[in-house]
C-alpha cells in the first residue's frame, strides 16, 4: 500500500513542518490542526456546512489530536482523540482538516 503524494504548495505551517491532510494520518500519529479547507473533501453538504460541523465537534485551529483507531476494511473510518473526547470520522471528510504532524 502506498501513501498518496502530498502536494500542498500554498499551505505553510508556522513551525515549518509540512502540512498534511488529516485523512492521510495513520494510527498512532499525533498532529496539530492548522486549518480547515472544505474544498479538499468530497461532501454532499452545502458550502460552509462541513467546516461548521467540524468546528462544533472540536476540529479547530490549534487543537491537538491523535489517531487512536482505524476501521475495517480499508482503515476507514478513523477515531481521533481531540483534547478530552474521541471523534469518529471518515477519511474522505478528514481531508478537509489540514494538520501539522507532531513528533
Amino acid at each position: 500500500m502506498t501513501i498518496p503524494d502530498m502536494n500542498f504548495p500554498d499551505a505553510t505551517a508556522e513551525d515549518g513542518a509540512i502540512p498534511v491532510h488529516l485523512g492521510l494520518l495513520r494510527k498512532g500519529q499525533r498532529a496539530e490542526v492548522i486549518g480547515l479547507d472544505e474544498t479538499a473533501a468530497t461532501t454532499p453538504l452545502p458550502p460552509g456546512e462541513l467546516e461548521r460541523r467540524m468546528i462544533e465537534m472540536g476540529l479547530i485551529e490549534g487543537a491537538r489530536l491523535e489517531v487512536l483507531h482505524e476501521g475495517f476494511p480499508g482503515s476507514d473510518p478513523i477515531a481521533v482523540r481531540i483534547a478530552d473526547h474521541i471523534l469518529a470520522l471518515r477519511r474522505a471528510e478528514a481531508h478537509a482538516v489540514l494538520v501539522s504532524p507532531l513528533a
Binding site: T42, T43, M54, P77, H85, L87, A88, R90, E93
Partner: peptide, 12 residues
C-alpha cells in the same frame, strides 16, 4: 443517489 452524509460522531 448521492454521496453519503458525513460521519462526525463522538465516541463517548
Amino acid at each position: 443517489k448521492g454521496a453519503r452524509e458525513p460521519l462526525l460522531m463522538e465516541l463517548p
